[in-house]
């Protein structure tokens, strides 16, 4: 690996260890997913509690919305575990070879994809879940209909997970000979 000028940004980026990128990717995958999940849960939860005061029957049904949000965090955990199994140690000589760099970047990208897909998915499911709780309290026939919308919303997070896992398959480290 050569960089033109030893004080340039490009130089700096190239010499960051691929392990740093990999670790940040794993952190984003779980951290941002949990952020999305918790965001969704509070949006749903605050409406659910309020609506349940006048219509207590909705509480156990609408736990499904909370579980959907929770699933988003679980995606993040799963992907983070998959990503960390991709980490292998290579000797110092191979650390900055093209293959190591690719492995580091692909884990990083995979983490970002999963993290942000799950963030927006969590918010989406949370907002729908909140509407679901409010409308179920008024008219219980609406529950199933809104649940369908919610399922489609939570599928968005799965797309991120699938792409993230495929992406992480790119992470192969050079074998020390």
């Amino acid at each position: 690996m050569r960089a033109a000028d030893s004080s340039s940004w490009r130089h700096a980026l190239l010499y960051i260890s691929p392990y740093t990128f990999a670790a940040i990717g794993i952190a984003i995958s779980i951290g941002v997913s949990v952020l999305g999940a918790s965001w969704g849960i509070y949006v749903t939860g605050s409406s659910l509690i309020g609506a349940a005061i006048k219509a207590p029957r909705i509480t156990s049904k609408n736990l499904i919305s909370v579980i959907f949000c929770e699933a988003v965090a679980i995606y993040g955990v799963i992907v983070a575990i998959i990503l960390q199994t991709k980490l292998e140690s290579v000797t110092r000589d191979y650390q900055h070879t093209a293959e190591s760099m690719r492995a580091g970047y692909s884990i990083f990208a995979s983490g970002i994809i999963v993290g942000f897909a799950n963030l927006v998915c969590g918010i989406c499911v949370g907002v729908i879940g909140s509407s679901c709780a409010l409308s179920d309290a008024q008219n219980s026939t609406l529950f199933v209909k809104i649940l369908v919308i919610e399922i489609f919303g939570s599928a968005l997070g799965l797309f991120g997970v699938i792409v993230g896992i495929i992406m992480s398959a790119q992470a192969t480290w050079p074998k020390a000979t």
């Binding site: 965001w39 509070y42 949006v43 605050s46 409406s47 659910l48 509690i49 309020g50 609506a51 005061i53 006048k54 219509a55 918010i123 907002v127 909140s130 709780a133 409010l134 309290a137 008024q138």
Partner: peptide, 23 residues
């Protein structure tokens, strides 16, 4: 608003909708 409204308003909004259903 959907992102942040419920921090302060979600609970009460749901309550007022509950009141509404009692009309």
């Amino acid at each position: 608003e959907a992102l942040t409204f419920n921090i302060h308003g979600g609970f009460l909004e749901a309550i007022v909708r509950g009141f509404r259903s009692g009309m």
